[in-house]
Design a protein around this nucleic acid. Sequence first.
DNA 1: TATAACCATTGTGTGGCTACAACCATTCCG
DNA 2: CGGAATGGTTGTAGCCACACAATGGTTATA
Lengths: 139, 139
Amino acid sequence: MSAGHEAAARRSWEIMRGLVLDHDRRKDVSDALGMSFLKAKALRALTQEPATLRVLAATLAVDAPYATIIVDDLEGRGLVTRTVHPEDRRARLVDLTPDGRVAAATADRMLSEPPAVLRELDSGRLRALEALLSALVAD
Amino acid sequence: MSAGHEAAARRSWEIMRGLVLDHDRRKDVSDALGMSFLKAKALRALTQEPATLRVLAATLAVDAPYATIIVDDLEGRGLVTRTVHPEDRRARLVDLTPDGRVAAATADRMLSEPPAVLRELDSGRLRALEALLSALVAD
DNA sequence: TATAACCATTGTGTGGCTACAACCATTCCG
DNA sequence: CGGAATGGTTGTAGCCACACAATGGTTATA
């Protein structure tokens, strides 16, 4: 690997990192939903299917007590339901309420909104960029 | 702007965001330096030139009391000096010590390290990616 | 059946960060 | 010159996230 290759990788990384961190919407999501980003993340984690507290804790990379606190809060806001798991009375099943689903969608929408510079890039370049990035993560 | 264009922008953003957030070294920097990322960020902010506490607070986007706490800690670790500003006795000038400069360089090195997928991209694609990203931020 | 493991809950403690109040010394400006 | 503004410091309060301990009920297993 040549020095030029290394420099290009670093430069590319620097730009990407700068873009993403300068356009970090996590605080906006927190403000919009009125909750910590982790709680918003919990809602988003539940959009596909309900989860037990243990699974949710693992998904959020938090310990069980904290998962309980998070779900306590979300339940209190009417965004999730917490029921006894049908197959294991020790477990709880956490599922989104309709309001919770709306909140999760809001967060998703905000997080998926690309910065203007991307949207303003000309079509040829954007397509090329998308292809290169897709190849990058396909490996 | 066509639907395809919007989708390409979103997809590109999603990939970039995923890459950067999955390769987030901030915790590693904190662990390596034994301090919060904000403190490491303060050190890095001082590499170009000394700053007053007010400027440092603005750079870090924290309020004055918290900037004081940050600098207190860094000073206590021997990583910065805090002197009365030569032109305004109300102000303090915060500068890196040699140790502080080493710590800042460590953080910079860690943060600038691109992920393997970037380094492993073939030269042609990497060069193209770098050019597209550079054009993106040149606008 | 007894023991171990699992799941969730309750509780304590800590560091990081944010917001804000109050104060003192210094500088600016009318 | 006096009042206002500025820069930094000290202090309080609260939320967030993380770590860990302990508990009780349930399930699995030897």
